[in-house]
Design a protein around this nucleic acid. Structure first.
Lengths: 189, 189
DNA sequence: GTCTATAACACGATAGAC
DNA sequence: GTCTATCGTGTTATAGAC
């Protein structure tokens, strides 16, 4: 375990505030108050408000990219790859619930890193869609519209941050399993 | 068809801007520029920035409430009620794509109307969950965790605004049908 | 590393001419 | 109904004392 620096504290406190009101509505004074200091003091640890957002979003986006790379390179069925994607989202979200809110809702306020973020996101979605298409081709997955399948799965997974903090009693692995079941097998009896 | 007043124009232009950057990041000067006028002139038509947000969100929320009331009072199977909910979301989103973004992302910036909005949302989710629980009890729906089922369906439906504008070629009824299929029957072959 | 003070500017909203 | 001008306040960020 690495020790949490003052900068890390500021970033995770900011993530919590950003989750509740969004990046634009949170002021440096709000953040300073939550940290128990004055706004000017924040600048001894971070370069700018923008710098905080970048730190929150980019590290999570890169974690998703690494996870997806592992999944596409794994030798297993496409259905099993989809289940691994569900686990990837559940685990990352469980570890950084507040940061996921910024990633979902405030990515457009990235400035210098916006293009980089969009490239990562686009690659991720392309890989996701490829797995679904391969699954349909291999007759593992019903021959439905692959875009609708990805949209349905991905939006559910992206919204996990709203739901996971309320379900602390539920183990991450249990949640990933139940969610996989609902997303893949459907609900009809 | 009622004629679109200047106030309506301002509200729908605002909704488009709010969709892209969020309520807090859009200034009255941005909105005025998009309308081809000066910021001060906006105030001849609307009372405040807050007033615009209220107009966007509350009318949509009330439309959802009306639709849900009709659905729970209809005499049909619970699976069929879920399909009607999917259609309700697809139709409302198709008619007001930009407004749905504000409803999803900027509801917390409602001030006077926040409690009212939250009450409507809570009632909606309670009714949704009741349908799922009734469906499980009537053996129409698999005996899974009803909260997970609602979460999965509702987050997909709430994210439709991100997806519908890209799929203008797809008819609203076709989309509702395909989406119902994926959400209810699953994707496993 | 935190503070006070403040620069430099953007914000929502109003007053009053036309 | 739109404009110019502006008020009062809030914003990010910096300078410099301690």
């Amino acid at each position: 375990m690495k020790l949490e620096t003052r900068k890390d504290e500021i970033i995770s406190t900011a993530a919590k505030l950003f989750k509740d009101k969004g990046y634009s509505a949170v002021t440096m004074r709000d953040l300073a108050t939550a940290m128990g200091m004055k706004a000017a003091s924040l600048y001894n640890h971070i370069a700018s408000k923008q710098d905080i957002l970048k730190n929150i979003i980019i590290s999570i986006a890169e974690t998703f990219t690494e996870g997806m790379t592992e999944i596409i390179n794994s030798e297993t069925s496409n259905i099993s790859k989809l289940k691994k994607i569900v686990s990837l989202h559940v685990n990352i979200t469980a570890q950084n619930t507040n940061g996921m809110a910024s990633l979902n809702n405030d990515w457009m306020h990235l400035e210098d890193q916006l293009d980089y973020y969009l490239r990562l996101r686009n690659e991720y979605e392309t890989n996701f869609l490829t797995i679904i298409k391969n699954g349909i081709h291999a007759s593992e997955i019903k021959s439905t519209n692959p875009e609708i399948v990805m949209f349905s799965m991905l939006t559910t997974l992206r919204s996990l941050y709203l739901w996971i903090p309320k379900k602390e009693d539920l183990d991450a692995n249990d949640l990933a399993e139940s969610l996989s079941e609902v997303l893949i097998e459907g609900i009809n009896k």
